[in-house]
């Protein structure tokens, strides 16, 4: 399907762009054509590369799980763990999108679809901050009275420690 246009595509000025796209197309479907001259398929994906990405993803998952383990050194500073986990998640997401979803090998349309959506995502969350994120900065006294607080957690922990109840039969 490809042989007869390629020379003409290179002969005419503007059509070289088509040639580029065709190249890309052959990248995409290089496997089925059976053309011996296209080794581009090996560079696009290839099972070895997928397995490498898989190993990286597993390693990164283990890394984010590390924050849960007792060996995590910044246990008293949760923000360090959060930033670390988000960095790990973004790396994982990038690996999945670039390699498993083949975005690494796609043409420029990928930016048209992903960047506006990603910006929308970020702005949407930011727009929520004043009214939702800061909703408890100014609340009525009554509402504050019924709101759960960190002190309630401490109260229950104290209750667990206090041994108020007698345990007559529990030897």
């Amino acid at each position: 399907m490809s042989d007869h246009d390629v020379p003409s595509a290179h002969a005419h000025g503007p059509i070289t762009r088509v040639g580029e796209i065709r190249d890309h197309d052959d990248h995409e479907h290089g496997g089925h054509g059976g053309h011996g001259d296209h080794d581009s398929h090996a560079s696009h994906g290839g099972i070895g590369k997928y397995l490498l990405v898989f190993v990286a993803l597993c390693g990164l998952t283990t890394m984010s799980f590390l924050t849960y383990s007792p060996y995590w050194p910044w246990r008293d500073q949760p923000h360090v763990g959060w930033a670390f986990m988000m960095a790990v998640s973004c790396t994982k997401a990038l690996l999945v999108v670039l390699f498993f979803m083949h975005v690494f090998w796609e043409a420029n349309w990928k930016y048209v679809l992903t960047i506006p959506a990603a910006m929308m995502a970020i702005f949407l969350a930011l727009m929520l901050v004043p009214d939702v994120g800061m909703r408890n900065r100014m609340v009525s006294q009554e509402r504050a009275l019924h709101m759960a607080r960190g002190s309630d957690v401490r109260l229950m922990e104290q209750a667990a420690e206090a041994k108020v109840l007698t345990e007559p039969e529990a030897h």
């Binding site: 992903t114 959506a117 929308m120 995502a121 970020i122 949407l124 969350a125 939702v132």
Partner: peptide
């Protein structure tokens, strides 16, 4: 992306 971004952002 926007659907889940809305959920995760919220």
């Amino acid at each position: 992306i926007m659907f889940f971004a809305a959920l995760l952002g919220s």
